[in-house]
Design a protein around this nucleic acid. Structure first.
Length: 269
DNA sequence: AGGGCAACCCGGACGC
DNA sequence: TGCGTCCGGGTTGCCC
């Protein structure tokens, strides 16, 4: 589940690898992944360069020299790989963008998509998203105010993209663990100290996850030592039954509003 | 407003 | 090997 730290890691590495390279070919194997006819995508992309890659929440925006943008959302299980004919994953590739010999493979786009859009369309598409959790404007007072107006559980609040954008199933659990708060706690029933700890935990967990390269199964390219560096740093996610790294009590897995949720029933309160 | 839930989608894992 | 079955999970939309 690519969330903010994974997409930010991708953004940085993709920029290093692909910025200003000229697109030489496009292959679409799954038309549902795109929003225009394959031929149209091809004609719009070939000979264009990626001038910049930005990120908003879990989306990446590839800005093209033609003025258009590619808006990417990997949704569940989507991932990317940069390689060539000889070096590429043995998986179904929904879309392949070639930069000469170098190819960018889009894999696992089931509900995920890659849409060709104008600036205005991108803006409209992203207009409902809440603030970036690591954004400069989201200071503690703003966070406290937003949280105080929510009556749901921490789990559902963090996952809600209108509240804050970019946090998903994994990091909502990691943040709650770091803060020592149970994911089913009500957002508006936290005291001042708890809100402060939650805020610091959110900033800390996401910042560290980006530093380590996020939680990903596969590298972005051969020799990529960055992507997935946070895999071993997750402290509750997918650790059901394993000892809590703080108090050794077994990590609990529970379904909360139809999402698998991991927490320590002993040291999270 | 928030919880619950179905639908979307299909590759890949798993079972026989 | 080969076929059928089932699961995952972010997001949207609908109902209560």
């Amino acid at each position: 589940m690519p969330e903010l730290p994974e997409m930010e890691t991708y953004r940085r590495l993709l920029t290093e690898q692909l910025a200003r390279k000229v697109i030489t070919d496009v292959e679409v194997n799954r038309e549902k992944s795109i929003n225009v006819q394959p031929a149209q995508l091809k004609s719009q992309l070939i000979n264009a360069q990626i001038t910049e890659i930005t990120r908003r929440a879990k989306h990446l925006i590839f800005k093209l020299s033609s003025g258009k943008n590619l808006l990417l959302h990997l949704m569940l299980g989507g991932w990317m790989y940069i390689g060539n004919e000889a070096d590429n994953p043995d998986r179904t590739k929904q879309v392949i963008i070639s930069f000469g010999d170098k190819k960018l493979y889009f894999i696992g786009l089931r509900l995920g998509y890659l849409h060709l859009l104008t600036d205005t369309e991108v803006e409209k598409e992203l207009s409902d998203l809440g603030p970036e959790p690591l954004g400069q404007t989201l200071g503690f007072p703003a966070f406290r105010e937003r949280l105080g107006s929510r009556r749901g559980m921490l789990k559902t609040t963090f996952i809600n993209q209108q509240f804050l954008s970019g946090i998903g199933n994994c990091y909502s659990d990691e943040i709650c663990f770091e803060a020592g708060l149970l994911p089913m706690r009500k957002a508006d029933e936290l005291d001042e100290d708890e809100i402060k700890i939650l805020y610091q935990s959110m900033k800390g967990v996401l910042t560290r996850a980006i530093q380590f390269g996020g939680y990903m199964e596969e590298p972005l390219f051969k020799g990529d030592a960055k992507t997935g560096g946070y895999n071993e740093q997750c402290r509750v996610y997918d650790r059901e039954g394993e000892p809590c790294l703080r108090c050794s009590s077994p990590i609990v897995k529970e379904e909360i509003s139809s999402r698998k949720t991991f927490y320590c029933a002993n040291c999270q309160n």
